[in-house]
């Protein structure tokens, strides 16, 4: 009984502290929990790997900000690196002002890491990868891109005229884009699904935060999206798949965190069990 009272009256700060330790310790002493790739992740990977010819275009939507960066940033990096490794062209697009900073950081990072590990096949900004300038309007932007991408943006995110960039050669609208991977933790995913996929038939994959993952499963089932990366785990699975190809030496942000994620989950499961026992015992005692 003492124990039950202890649980019910536990100061929350103890839980915070233990949780912090659960996360920090695996970073210092990695265990390497086994990783299994799930079908929604694999189908995006396979699509980029097998279904897009060389020179094809992958559009990545960076519609997130620092608050969900921990989950979505690793996805952006790994998908972009994978596309580059297959000699595809990568375009970043964002419907939110803060997304531009995120995308630029990804581009810098991926280009630097790629050129470090593949000096014989260097990639260049403006030739292989770029960011389309941020233009306000959300759904209006998505719709206009279906007609003419160059006109929607005019410039890239670095102030260059899009029509002069090599990476934009032959790209007119969604017809010339082989796959879009939308990374967002908000309902902007729906905007892309409704307008770009629904109206223009753009092939789409979703990368989303774990919070929204459950919600977007239904769009996988309806085949509106070909696959989904859900949370840090989804990013880690993708890193795992790309790692088997051994072409990219960038840091595996998501995979490093997986041990910590697993140990935190174990801690939470224990808490939920203890909490429920305490709740039912207390309820029973009060009932008597």
């Amino acid at each position: 009984m003492k124990f039950i009272n202890f649980i019910n009256n536990l100061d929350k700060r103890w839980i915070y502290l233990i949780l912090a330790l659960c996360i920090i310790i695996p970073f210092l002493f990695p265990v390497g929990f086994p990783m299994k790739t799930t079908p929604p992740v694999k189908s995006i990977y396979d699509f980029i790997e097998d279904s897009i010819p060389e020179g094809g275009v992958v559009l990545i939507g960076a519609d997130y900000d620092p608050s969900t960066m921990a989950e979505l940033h690793p996805m952006a990096k790994v998908v972009a690196a994978h596309a580059l490794s297959n000699n595809l062209r990568v375009l970043f697009v964002t419907l939110y002002p803060q997304g531009a900073g995120m995308a630029q950081d990804v581009i810098d990072n991926v280009l630097r890491e790629w050129n470090k590990s593949n000096p014989d096949n260097p990639k260049e900004l403006g030739k292989d990868i770029t960011l389309l300038a941020y233009v306000p309007g959300v759904s209006a932007v998505v719709l206009k891109m279906g007609e003419d991408i160059l006109q929607t943006f005019n410039e890239d995110g670095y102030g260059n005229k899009l029509s002069e960039l090599e990476v934009m050669k032959g790209i007119k609208n969604y017809n010339n884009i082989n796959l879009m991977v939308e990374l967002a933790g908000s309902s902007v995913v729906l905007t892309w699904l409704i307008y770009a996929n629904g109206r223009y038939g753009l092939k789409m994959g979703i990368g989303t935060t774990a919070v929204s993952a459950a919600e977007y499963y239904s769009y996988l089932q309806s085949k509106q999206a070909i696959g989904m990366l859900g949370g840090l785990k989804g990013a880690a699975e993708y890193e795992h798949l790309l790692d088997e190809k051994k072409v990219y030496g960038g840091r595996k942000d998501a995979s490093i965190g997986m041990d910590a994620q697993s140990s935190a989950h174990i801690f939470f499961i224990i808490l939920i069990i203890l909490g429920n026992i305490a709740y039912f015992v207390k309820k029973r005692k009060e009932g008597k």
Partner: peptide, 16 residues
């Protein structure tokens, strides 16, 4: 469950 996972991920990102 997914939400717990997401919150932990955010914390992991910062700790990293």
């Amino acid at each position: 469950g997914y939400t717990i996972m997401a919150r932990v991920s955010l914390f992991i990102g910062r700790i990293q």
